[in-house]
Amino acid sequence: MTTVVSAQNLGLTFPTGDGDIVALSDVNLTINKGDFVSFIGPSGCGKTTFLRAIADLEKPTSGTLSVNGMTPEQARQARAYGYVFQAAALYPWRTIEKNIALPLEIMGHSPAEQSERIARTMELVNLSGFEKKYPWQLSGGMQQRASIARALAFDADLLLMDEPFGALDEIVRDHLNSELLKLWERTQKTICFVTHSIPEAVYLSTRIVVMSPRPGRVTDIIESTLPRDRPLDIRETPEFLAIAARVREGLRAGHSYDGGAV
């Protein structure tokens, strides 16, 4: 199996006025090609920071981190990954198709190839027919699908998703979750997915990384035993509930909710 992301003794500290904040401490993790890895934990546990470090949006202060065998910066310059943010961050002055064309323009694809890729990725996220719409004419769920299409358009093998469905209601979120699974199966991408929802993490992932704060660290890594083909009602099976219970156990073991007793 090829290694896509590899972190060894990774640490990341933010200096602030009130002293340093240890966002990540001694993180060791290997992500293989084709994995769907979820990062779960309460806020401040460093899950988003870890994703941003992979994307070269933050610089680790200790340890090593490699993406596709390169440094994160080299990987970014090689356009090794697509990143989906918490908000869709579509440019309001561009139509949906022009938004998806944005990375293609920057990376210098020909117009013909651009339109071919736009058509393909819009088909992939079920947005065909909305090419000429502006982002603000679409619902929140459709906007987030467009932003996923934008991340897929340039065919990077790695997809980094930072709570992409966090702002959506549960009905839309369920729907997009099952679509994301289908998309993952069809495209064979490696996906790193940050969430704070236990059912979402268990439903989607092949591996679940449980993290806890102060300092941000990995407390448990759970291999999912669920089959790759997962209908939505798999969430009622005992197997699913067992994994969810283990995740909850891991979160509790990290003392992440003890703060409430003060």
Binding site: R52, D56, L57, R76, G82, F85, P103, I106
Partner: peptide, 14 residues
């Protein structure tokens, strides 16, 4: 431009 929009351009190595 918002921080997210700029990060996006950064991930494209624009």
């Amino acid at each position: 431009a918002s921080a997210i929009e700029r990060d996006l351009m950064h991930t494209y190595a624009a």
